[in-house]
Every structure is written in C-alpha cells, then in structure tokens.
Design a protein around this nucleic acid. Structure first.
Lengths: 340, 340
DNA sequence: ATGCTTTCTGTGAACGTTCACAGTAACAGC
DNA sequence: GCTGTTACTGTGAACGTTCACAGAAAGCAT
C-alpha cells in the first residue's frame, strides 16, 4: 500500500510566487488586503502547479468540513430516492459536498451506527430520510449531538427540524375525486402501514370516506411492489365485498392491482376505477393511464438543504416543520360510477 | 456562525485512562503490544467520553481518507441508479465512506469540474458512472491524476480499469429469442444512440438480424422514457412497414410502445410481440408481462469496488475490463409469429 | 517631523492525528 | 552477571491548513 506521493501545498505555491504561505491562504479564501499584483502572481502559481487546498487540513483547523451527510432509508422506493437526488443537487448548489450512507433497517440502532461511522468526519450537518416509524425521532436528534439534523419524509406534525409532504392531504384529494365521480363502494390497497406516508394515506382515506357518510370498503396493505399490488387486489376480491373504485397507495401497486382485476374479468376503469400515488414518469403510459398524486420532490430537496444550512449557521434557531402539499393528476383510470 | 465546541481528542482519552496519547492511538488502530489491561482501560475511557477519532487529522497525516468518490451521470435512469446503490453498499461493506457527486452533462469538462471539487479531499479512489460517450475516456483517467479511477457502465472493449455489462450480448439474446419464435419482420425502438448501451444494443440487433438472413425492420431512437417509446412506436407505424415484433431498448419505452400499438388497433402480443430491456421490478406486471433482459447490477457494484480497492493497494496493477453478462427473461409479451 | 490610519505581508502556534524512534521492564540463554 | 530479545510505553516531529498577532510601508492630517 504505497503512500501517495507528496502533495502540492500552500508552501509550494508560496515559494513559486515569492510570498509567504499566509498570503497564499488569503488569496485562496479571497480575503481583502492582498495587492492585486500579488494576487495575480499567486493565482498563476496555483494554476501552474495545479494546486488544490487540502480539505482535511482545512477542516482540522476550522472545525468545519463544508460537507453534509445524508443517511437514507428506502432507496429501493421512488419517493425516498427522488429526495436523495434532489438533496444532492441542492447541496451541491449550496457548495456542500455530500457523504452518502444508506441504512437497510429503520431502527435507532442502525441510525446510530450510521452516525457513529460519520462522527469522525465532523460533517457540518445531516439530512436523514426516515419514511418509516422504526424509532422515536427525538432519539435521532439526540444521537446527532450538536450536529444539526434535518429529517425528511417523516412523521407529520412533529415540532422538529424537518420537511415533509402532507400525504394525508394527497390521499384526501384523490379519495374525494373518486367520491365526486359517484363511487360509494371504495376499497383500498395501502402501503405498509409502518411507513408514515402509508399510514397517513390510509387514515385520510378512512376519514374522507366517513366524512362523506360512506362505509369504507375492504382494505389490504401491500409492500409498495407491483407484486404486492397484484396479490393485495386478489385478497380484496376474495372478501366478496363489491367495489367500484380502488384507491391504491402507490403507482406500482396500482399496476399490479389492475392486472389482478383484469384477470378476474373486471375492466379498468369501466368496472373498477383505480388510483395510484407518486406519479411515476411511466404512470401516464400505464394501461389505463393512471390518476395519481404528484409530489414535488425537488422542493423537498431544496427546502431541507436550506433548513440545514440555516441550522448550521445558527444551531439554536427554532425548530420548524416545513410541509409540502401534493397535487392531484387526473387521467383515465378513474371514470364516473357506471352502476352495477 | 459559531465555531463548534471543543472536541474530545486522543489526549482527553489518554488523560482519563492514565496513558499517553500514543497508546490510545495504538488501541484504536489495534496495534499489537498493548497490555490487555491497558487496552481495556482505554476502551472504557473511549466509551465513557464517546470519543471518535478525527478523520481529518488522521487523513492529514496518513494521506489516505478511506473514502471513495462516486461521480454519477444519469441518475434519472434505472441502470445507472442501480449501480450507484450497489456501489454504495459494496463500498460500505469494504469499510469505505462514499462522497457522492452527480454530473448533469457528460463532458470532459463537467467531469473535470467534479474531480476538481473533490480533489481537496484526496479521496482514495473514484468510481465514475459514464454511460454516454460525451468524452474520450482516456482523458478522464488523466484528469484523475494519480487517484485510481474505475469506470462503470461505459464503452465495452476498452483496455482500462472498468466494469461493464455486455449490452450487445443481451440484445443478441433477445433478438434471437424473437427470431426463434418465427418472426421475420422485426422493428426496433432503440435508446438514445450516444449512450454506449443503446448503441451496443442497436448494433447487436442489426447484426443478429443480418446473421439470420433477415432484413432489419425500421428503427427509431427514443430517450428511454415511456413517452418517447409511445412516440417512437407511432413513428414506426407511420413508416408503413409492417412488423410482427418490436425490440425495444428498455422497459419504460416498451410500456409506451405497447400503448401506441394498442391505440392503433394492434394487439400485443398477438399482432406484435414486444420486448424490453432492464427487467424493472414492475415489468412482470405490465400488460402484457414483459419479455426482457435482466442485468445483475449488484455484481457490477461489487466488482467495481473490488477493482478500485485493488488499484488503491497497487496503482500500477494491470488495467482490465470486467465484463458482466445479462440474462434473458421470457414473459408473455412475446409469442410465436401468428401469420399476417 | 510626528502620529494615526489604511493597506499589505509575514511569523508562530494550533488543530488532532500517526510515524519514527527511543526508552523501560521482564525474562530468557549462556 | 551480562547480553539479547520480547513486550510494552512514551516523546518529538510532521501532516497542511487557518488564526491571532505583529510588523512594514504608504498616505494623510496635524
């Protein structure tokens, strides 16, 4: 394991441009009080030597790394993944580098492990994607110690630094849409209920049904996959309870559900209207094109990075939760109730 | 911007456990020649103080960061994304932290910018996901200087440290499959041809057709999206050239294509067999379930991290390209030619 | 001339580690 | 008892920056 060769340092640049290392440092950090002529000479030397300031050394003395960590859960799923990508671009735009770490199990322990791993980097802040209720979120803030933490895609209504999409709102939008189309027998295929979003969508569906004076149809939970949508729909059919509309927790499960319904001789949307959630880029090309909910993940990314940077600047800033509202996208998978 | 409070250091641990800082360092790095009793005392102190070695300081003196950077292009697409996720888990398993950076444009310049940004971290190695031919790959290796670089999802047949999937192989598999089903009029909807993978799949389709003595049907290029699949299929239909099978560059485009074909009164698969590429988790639940190609991205992730680690250990190790072969998944979207 | 401010530049120390080396104690072999 | 080895521990320097401070030169007002 050969040691990398000697690196170009401040001193090399200083020597070449005939000034002290401190002056070079000043040029790099664009401090005032450097003569124009000197600055240019130093800049030329930097370029000539292809010098790059050593961030480890800088971070050692400044105690800042200009780096944020993202601890992510659920990268196999559309929503969490989109958040990651949008956070990366927002962080980069803000001049921060990103250390990326996933956790495969959503528990305080596995989070603590991830934080432990990153502790030595002394990152300036942490964004965590925590869409499932594996743990008390307060404990996560504690585990981060004095490092600012922003949670995203987490439990709504917590008074902690976080950015969430109001999933219940989306679910209400889509359930009302179906009700307004004249459907009264509405079944549900929810996501796994230990996910905050799935729970919120499920509760909102229930509540919206009750508010409308309707008896909620049968409900089954899946695991977000198309396969579970397929199997969930079969389970719903097996209950024998008739329904003319099916509210599904995400687009993939809706895809599986449509398949199951058709295999049972039911037409979609004529016999059963089906809705999704997420608005995958493909959703418009499903058969039929899916009525669904669109969530603006790029705003989530921007807001969370903004919030984190604010907290880095002032760790004592009051905790707030930013809430983003989704939008209804109506396509051809939902039609007015046609009668039995 | 308050400076973070003083941190726990080796010295604090040393003082608490009544040894020198060097001994603490030895315990942390599990050097031999530390008395069992001392080791335990130090460990206890570390735990008690919740001490974490400062990685910046360590990296400064060792000139290694135990960190690798991943520079990624095309995170909006399934393949590149899967590679990213698999690299993350492989890197973590190997004890490396990951700095994550995306580039939105595939050019030497934007790559150089990304490398420039990371240069100060002195990462131990770099993995770059470069699925499109924006630049001469040699230049990328040059841009990385002495930092080991492994390219993935890049041009096949280059004698540089890289891991690629033989996309042409997959395309041959699927084209042959369609030919064996008796189809002779086979059209193609390719991906954007400046992507290495799309080009490879396209050429292999052409070649396989010719080898079988068949005249290749019309071919149109899309941009991987379902929308472009839809529009591409419309364009193919507009040519007026009849085809009984359509080989599509990925699953999403296949989805759009199926939709377009059906809108034109063609049944899938009875009138036109359609194939995809990627084997999205949803592909089995498309209508009809899609015959497609499966690629083992987790192997790509593992191999690339292995290769990078080897090169970190010995930068002069001979360059090699690891090639991974995909597999054919037959589903219901392809059926024997039914006659016109 | 003298002093005061402004602009510019340099020096020593510190950040928290590891490395190279030197030291000490114990125990063996002769 | 002397020497050599093994097991363990400590000391100074170095890594490449920034910070706090000090100093020099120039300009301006007194």
């Amino acid at each position: 394991m050969a040691k990398p060769s000697r690196r170009i340092t401040l001193n090399d640049v200083a020597r070449l441009s005939g000034v002290s290392y401190q002056t070079v440092s000043r040029v790099i950090n664009s401090h005032p009080y450097v003569a124009q002529e000197t600055r240019e000479r130093v800049l030329a030397a930097i370029k000539k030597l292809d010098y790059h300031p050593n961030r480890a050394a800088k971070s050692l003395v400044t105690r800042r790394s200009h780096t944020i960590a993202i601890i992510a859960f659920g990268m196999a799923y559309y929503g969490p993944l989109q958040m990651l990508l949008n956070i990366e671009s927002a962080a980069k735009a803000a001049g921060y580098d990103l250390i990326f770490s996933t956790v495969s199990e959503m528990s305080v322990q596995s989070f603590r492990d991830a934080i432990e791993r990153l502790a030595g980097w002394h990152v300036d802040g942490i964004v965590a994607i925590t869409p499932v209720c594996g743990c008390n979120t307060d404990e996560l803030y504690v585990a981060c110690g004095s490092t600012p933490l922003v949670l995203i895609d987490t439990c709504l209504g917590q008074h902690v630094p976080s950015v969430v999409i109001d999933q219940g709102y989306g679910s209400r939008l889509i359930t009302r849409h179906v009700i307004e189309l004249g459907h009264t027998a509405i079944a549900e295929l929810s996501g796994p209920l230990h996910w905050y979003g799935a729970e919120a969508r499920h509760s909102a569906w229930l509540q919206t049904m009750q508010e409308a004076g309707l008896t909620p149809g049968p409900s089954v939970a899946g695991d977000w996959s198309a396969r579970s949508g397929y199997e969930g729909a079969l389970a719903l059919l097996k209950t024998g309870v008739r329904f003319s509309a099916l509210v599904v927790g995400n687009d993939q499960m809706a895809l599986g559900a449509v398949r199951a319904l058709r295999e049972h001789g039911l037409r979609v949307p004529e016999d059963v209207s089906v809705t999704g959630y997420d608005n995958l880029p493909e959703a418009a090309y499903f058969n039929p094109p899916l009525t669904t909910i669109w969530q603006d993940f790029s705003i989530v990314g921007q807001r969370s990075v903004e919030m984190l940077i604010d907290r880095i600047a002032d760790p004592a800033a009051p905790a707030e939760q930013r809430v983003i509202y989704p939008r209804l996208i109506i396509r051809e998978s939902t039609v007015p109730f046609q009668g039995w």
